[in-house]
């Protein structure tokens, strides 16, 4: 439908549209400029590394989350799945079975932990696709049970380790770049490409945009849902490993705690439609970086963490509000 709105209205609409599309990117740019001017030692490689390392796991998880949200779903269980993956891996590579062949142990541990995480995701997808359970409820199951499982596996013990072969995933620096940053970039690029160019990406967006229409056009809606939750589990699995590698320890109570909210916030601020049908991985990346940088900026300038959280919430509120303006 064409709207013959008078010029002024049209202009103000365009401003909102522009802000909704590029607002996050502009905010990110402003933050960087602000920090270069006001924050001491900001423009250093070390600061960059600190920020990237901290934001990595959020971006990795948020990438999977973006796909889930693109189908009109949500995944609350990612934090708990990280805990499962983080609990399982040390159990395997610390086991005496591998003796001096630690490389084999680490390889098996990684594959097993990520597979377990993917299976958890598949379980979420199964609940959502097969039984039509609301995603927020379906993933609440593993949100609660997942951390319990992780604690049961480790008897709630802290697992401490010093295994450089494993910790490479969190501490390694090929070409001077942290491994997890490379991982993050790879995941982001691959997923962005999937969403934009692949048949799977189309299915995801069609499912989220209009499930009934997608079904009638022959799209495999159920399989698509299974896949996005599995991918979300997969991403959470990787993130779990990165976290414990950095910490040299795995605590089932803490790994991935609150991650679901950070990831959802990144997706929302990035401009992905929370009701599904429109998604941007690059937006999610920008969103996560912005939230991270806001926090860093406030902390680096002496604002306490509690206040930083409130600012974070305000940013999310503004971002979602901007999105709604665009929807009209």
């Amino acid at each position: 439908m064409t709207v013959n709105a008078p010029g002024r209205r049209l202009d103000s609409f365009d401003v909102l549209e522009f802000l909704a599309r590029y607002g996050t990117l502009i905010a990110l740019g402003l933050l960087i400029v602000f920090n270069i001017v006001f924050t001491r030692n900001f423009a250093t490689l070390q600061t960059l590394n600190v920020n990237l390392t901290q934001v990595c796991t959020i971006v990795i998880v948020a990438t999977g989350m973006t796909l889930v949200i693109a189908t009109g779903g949500i995944d609350l269980s990612v934090g708990s799945i990280m805990a499962i993956s983080g609990a399982l891996a040390p159990l395997i590579f610390l086991s005496p079975v591998f003796g001096d062949n630690i490389a084999l142990g680490v390889a098996i541990a990684m594959v097993a932990a990520i597979s377990a995480a993917t299976l958890c995701g598949l379980f979420n997808g199964w609940l959502v696709a097969q039984f039509r359970i609301q995603p927020i409820v379906a993933t609440l199951v593993l949100f609660i049970a997942g951390r319990g499982i992780a604690q049961a596996m480790t008897n709630s013990n802290l697992q401490v380790f010093r295994v450089p072969e494993f910790q490479w995933i969190g501490l390694g620096r090929p070409f001077g770049l942290p491994v997890q940053v490379l991982l993050m970039v790879t995941l982001v690029v691959v997923t962005a490409w999937l969403l934009r160019r692949s048949r799977f990406g189309r299915s995801v967006l069609a499912t989220g945009g209009n499930e009934r229409a997608a079904e009638l056009a022959g799209i495999a809606v159920k399989r698509t849902k299974l896949a996005v939750y599995a991918i979300s589990g997969f991403c959470a699995g990787i993130a779990g490993l990165v976290v414990i590698a950095i910490n040299s320890a795995s605590d089932a109570n803490l790994v991935g705690l609150g991650m679901e909210l950070d990831a959802i916030a990144a997706v929302a601020v990035g401009g992905t439609l929370l009701v599904g049908g429109r998604a941007t991985i690059m937006g999610t990346l920008t969103g996560a970086l912005t939230i991270q940088l806001v926090r860093y900026t406030l902390l680096a300038n002496g604002v306490p963490d509690a206040a930083a959280m409130i600012v974070k919430a305000a940013i999310i509120a503004v971002a979602v509000w901007l999105q709604q303006q665009r929807r009209v």
Partner: peptide, 12 residues
């Protein structure tokens, strides 16, 4: 309700 996917393009 059952035809168009509103957020998608004409081509898609």
């Amino acid at each position: 309700l059952e035809g168009i996917v509103p957020e998608m393009s004409v081509a898609e």
